[in-house]
Design a binder for these strands. Sequence first.
DNA 1: AAAATTTAGATTGCGCACAATTAAATTGTA
DNA 2: TACAATTTAATTGTGCGCAATCTAAATTTT
Lengths: 157, 157
Amino acid sequence: MSDTEIDPLRLDRMLCFAIYAAGHAFNRFYKPRLDALGLTYPQYLVLLVLWEQDGLSIKMLGERLILDSGTITPLVKRMETRGLMRRERDHEDERVVRVYLTEEGRALRQRALSIPLEVAGATDFDLDAIDQLRMALEQLREKLDAGPDDIAGPGER
Amino acid sequence: MSDTEIDPLRLDRMLCFAIYAAGHAFNRFYKPRLDALGLTYPQYLVLLVLWEQDGLSIKMLGERLILDSGTITPLVKRMETRGLMRRERDHEDERVVRVYLTEEGRALRQRALSIPLEVAGATDFDLDAIDQLRMALEQLREKLDAGPDDIAGPGER
DNA sequence: AAAATTTAGATTGCGCACAATTAAATTGTA
DNA sequence: TACAATTTAATTGTGCGCAATCTAAATTTT
């Protein structure tokens, strides 16, 4: 145990904790803004997806947000109760449930437009720095999700 | 709405979502490793703190992990039930509850040492890249938590 | 067509995460 | 000494997040 050895379990040096804590900080930052819209953060994410493409199935929503049906199903049901969307079985395939925004759900988009600007203002990171950070995190996420030793490697095949 | 305008609400471009998703990916990565130790990720964080400094109060634990008593109290109680730690009122100040590791709680540290190495192996980011990413996230977290217009600025004092 | 398999979604159970409230102990002050 | 203000935990209630399990519908195999 020399002085030059770095403790591998120091909280302050852990990337996972930095991500965990930054996620909470984002939540705290968003909360008052989303409260004004009557939304939680995951509900906001669902709307972001549906504003891009309405009528997605529960499964497609889950793939987009990387959440499973145990999370998405009650989440969407709460949003339906609040009148933001409507769930409807696909007549082509009765297994799939499609989610359609109501007028109220679509209307919220205008009120949400200011939020990214507030984030940019609060962090005052320049756009390049944000982009770089985001891409590093996406790369990290892919590697973590790739599993042990990248079963079907990207190189050869 | 020209082609060159970027939609400010695109999920794919959102830093908050990249952080949110990377946090989940870390959780998934850690889960099988922590299951082997009988721990959840937040419980692992509590141990990281106590391995560095035993006998902390609930409040100090919460400050370190940026969590409030509504999270810490039941979390620590579950860990006490599993025999990892013991809760004890401070005799100097009966309001504060101090948390002390048991022998079993201390012993887990050895078994946890391999986890950071596995993270490093899975991501194969070099140490500098990890450090840079971590510091960017810490800076981001501070700015998000600093509140509107940075009430008591960091510059002078 | 009947049986086996696959897929989509819902349900249950557990553990965070946090706001809001309450209770108890300590400190500050008249 | 009283008593108001502050501090520390605990409690309650709501909403994720995910594993495991279940049901029903569709697809594939035989």
